[in-house]
Design a protein around this nucleic acid. Sequence first.
DNA 1: CTTATATTGATATTTTATTATCTATATTAT
DNA 2: ATAATATAGATAATAAAATATCAATATAAG
Lengths: 204, 204
Amino acid sequence: MYKEIPLISLQRMPVYLNYLKSIPDSEKFVSSGHIAEALGLGEVLVRKDLAYTAAVGRPRVGYVTEELISAIEEFLCFNGKRHAVIIGYGAVGKAILDYGGFGYYGIEVVAAFDSDTDKLGQSPSGKPVYDVADAEAQIARLNAKLAIICVPAPAAQGVADMLVRCGVKAILSFAPATLKTPEGVEVRQIDVAANLAILSSSIK
Amino acid sequence: MYKEIPLISLQRMPVYLNYLKSIPDSEKFVSSGHIAEALGLGEVLVRKDLAYTAAVGRPRVGYVTEELISAIEEFLCFNGKRHAVIIGYGAVGKAILDYGGFGYYGIEVVAAFDSDTDKLGQSPSGKPVYDVADAEAQIARLNAKLAIICVPAPAAQGVADMLVRCGVKAILSFAPATLKTPEGVEVRQIDVAANLAILSSSIK
DNA sequence: CTTATATTGATATTTTATTATCTATATTAT
DNA sequence: ATAATATAGATAATAAAATATCAATATAAG
């Protein structure tokens, strides 16, 4: 009987992964205590998190670093390759469309959409920028179940509604706006200003 | 005796704020139940969070919407105006330097720095882009205690070390790398790919 | 004026997350 | 070969977060 991973543990997985990738290749083994120390977490917490993956550690030795990396990668990419699209080819959309860091998680950002026809064509790395009017057809054709909203806040809900109609199942939004979606369509928000504000309030 | 707000409650403050801002002006009052419903949270949780601010609600009525917005804003901007700088004027740095959403939290992004001298000068909105070689002097002059790291992951730790030397007290990093900073220097990370991966894994 | 009700704010309970403790074991040292 | 030790993995205890309950009260209705 497998227990579903809590979101809070899931969110730490990429943190472990980033840390493990930074370890020199010469370090064949890594212990939970070592990881915990480096990341400022408890070592039991680290072991419990890692227990959700397929990795098994050996007493007195720890985990085989490479095996652990593979286990976390596999855990995070469990669903295999996925296509994502971007709505809004402004500064944020541009930055994300040509960012190379998604492949690592089995995700490919395959296209962007914008309502400004002057922006249509190709990104510097050659990815297509389509008219948002064609989004419904293109998203179906591209089989994208993931979308990233990069439009201004007032337009975000309308875009989300459209994405739901297109069959998108998960939305990452950069717009600082509350999005309402039907059951079965997950939303996550990245509010850069809010993150900075939270940090700022930690300064004495 | 005031109790320090837990990070998890603090993180919900901007969420409340975004929602409250979206309420039409005609709605003079708003109840915790109404907010909870809209955001998918428990109503007691909402009341407890809001109790950290100066807002007081009235039985049978709720909170005065405008008062509540002001109370949360004040709570989040408690430390007054702050300057922030950006290190790395690539696609991400560009997007953030000219993003207008920080003022709302009492934060002003005043400059960016890059090592590529071809990028130096001014942003489209007229903000300066300086040589990173001058960062130490400029950050002191600008009195920036906040910094945003927008360089590739391998360069991030070096930049963080430099920022610490400059007296920066809080760092927001977009680089998917574990950053080590001395006590008293807070770090938050925004890993866009990881966020998308977490979302992706929620799709059945 | 009295009663009913929605809502706050406080307290109690439950659930979830984290940390501590313990047991088993693989490796290393003797 | 034996003993010592570091570490995983399991279980127990604690702490933190979320939710439920309840008393007080301002407003609305009768």
